[in-house]
Simulated assay, not measured.
Amino acid sequence: MIDSKTTVTQGVIAVSIVAFSALGWQPLAIAGTAVMASNEARVSTNVKAEAPIELMHIHGLSYSADGKQILIPSHNGIAVYAQGRWSTMAGPKHDYMGFSATRDALYSSGHPAPGSDAVNPFGLIKSNDGGKTWEKLSLEGESDFHTLATSYGTNAIYVFNHQANSRMKAIGIYFTESDGMTWNRIAANGLKTKVNSLAAHPNDAKILAVGAGDGLYLSRDGGNHFEQIIDRKQVLAQWFDLDGKRLWFSNYAGGPALSLIRLTGDARAEQIQIPIDADDAIAYIAQNPIWLKELAIATFKRSVYVSHDQGATWTQIAKAGATL
Rank of each mutant, 00 (worst) to 15 (best):
G172H: 14
G153M: 10
F99S: 06
N165C: 13
M168H: 06
G223I: 07
T193Q: 03
Y96N: 13
Y96F: 15
T154Q: 11
K93Y: 06
I171M: 11
E140T: 11
L106H: 01
D95C: 12
T154C: 09
K93D: 07
T133H: 08
R167E: 02
G211F: 08
Y152L: 11
S197R: 01
A205F: 12
S116D: 12
N203A: 14
S151L: 09
N161S: 14
S151V: 04
V159T: 10
E227F: 06
S109E: 08
N184W: 06
P112E: 03
G110I: 05
L106A: 00
Y81F: 13
A200T: 05
P202G: 14
I171E: 15
E227Q: 10
G123T: 00
S87C: 07
F99E: 10
Q163H: 15
W134P: 10
K136I: 12
A205T: 11
G98V: 13
A149E: 15
G153P: 05
V195C: 09
P92K: 14
G130R: 03
F175P: 02
T88I: 11
N165R: 13
N224R: 14
D214T: 05
S219Q: 09
H201E: 00
V159D: 03
P92M: 02
N224P: 09
M181S: 13
A113G: 03
P92D: 06
S197D: 06
G131Y: 02
N128L: 14
L191T: 03
T193Y: 05
G213T: 12
Y158H: 03
A113Y: 08
T182A: 14
V159H: 00
D95P: 13
G180I: 10
M168N: 01
D104K: 05
D214S: 07
N128Q: 01
T88Q: 10
H111T: 04
A105L: 06
Y217G: 05
D117I: 14
Y217H: 11
L106C: 01
F175G: 02
R220G: 11
Y81A: 00
N155R: 14
N165K: 12
R220Y: 15
F226A: 09
A199S: 14
T150Y: 07
I186G: 09
